[in-house]
Amino acid sequence: METATDGQREIRRTLRDLLDRYARPTPEGYDPALWARMSGELGLARLALPELALACEETGRALAPSPLLATTVLAAPLVAALGTPAQRAELLPRIAAGELTCALAAPGGSLAHALGLTGDNTTGAWSGDGRAGGVQARPAPGGDGWLLYGEAAQVLDGHSAGLLLVAAHTGGFARSRTLLLLVRTRDAGPGLVRTRHAGLDPTRSPAAVQLRDVPAELLGEDPADPADITRALAAAGRTAAVLLAAEAAGAARGALDGALGHATARERHRLADLHVRVEAARTLTHCAAREPGPGPESGPLALAQALDALRDAAGEAVPPHDADRYGRRAIADALLFGPAGRLRARAAERTGLLGPAGEAAA
Rank of each mutant, 00 (worst) to 15 (best):
A81I: 03
G261K: 08
E349W: 13
P206S: 10
A76E: 12
I331V: 15
T195F: 12
L192Y: 05
T118Y: 05
T26W: 11
A161H: 09
I95S: 02
G142A: 13
A76F: 00
L274V: 05
S160P: 01
G83A: 08
P65H: 11
A288H: 07
L181K: 05
H286A: 09
A112R: 05
A96Q: 05
V73H: 04
R329K: 12
A306I: 02
R328A: 15
G145N: 09
A263D: 04
R212F: 08
P294W: 14
G83P: 01
L49R: 09
A97W: 09
C102R: 06
L284S: 07
G29D: 10
P320I: 10
G171T: 08
F337T: 00
P206F: 07
T170N: 10
L68E: 05
T5M: 03
G142V: 12
L181F: 07
E58G: 01
R253Q: 15
A347C: 06
T178G: 07
E221C: 00
T178P: 02
E90L: 14
G60W: 15
G133P: 04
R346G: 05
G261V: 06
E151W: 02
R37G: 08
D257G: 07
G261S: 04
A76I: 00
T72W: 01
T3F: 00
A272Y: 11
R21H: 13
P319D: 11
R342P: 00
L54I: 09
T185S: 10
W35G: 13
L180Y: 11
L164T: 09
G315Y: 14
A114K: 01
V242T: 08
L19A: 11
T178K: 12
Q154C: 01
T71F: 10
E247K: 05
T351H: 04
H113M: 07
R270C: 01
T71L: 11
T3E: 10
R311Y: 03
L15M: 11
C287H: 14
L164Y: 05
A167Q: 10
A249H: 02
G98Q: 10
G191H: 12
A302S: 08
A232L: 07
A132W: 08
L78I: 03
R175F: 15
L82S: 10
A23S: 15
R346E: 15
R266C: 00
R290C: 02
Y22I: 01
I95E: 02
P50S: 12
L244H: 06
A97H: 04
G142I: 12
A347T: 05
E279T: 04
L354D: 12
A224P: 09
L353M: 12
A70H: 14
L164S: 11
P27M: 03
R131P: 01
A174V: 13
D17T: 15
A55L: 06
L34V: 08
H269A: 13
V278C: 10
Y30D: 03
G43Q: 12
T170R: 15
E58H: 06
P300K: 06
E359C: 00
A281N: 08
W126F: 14
A361G: 06
E51T: 07
G133W: 13
P320G: 14
G261L: 09
A332W: 14
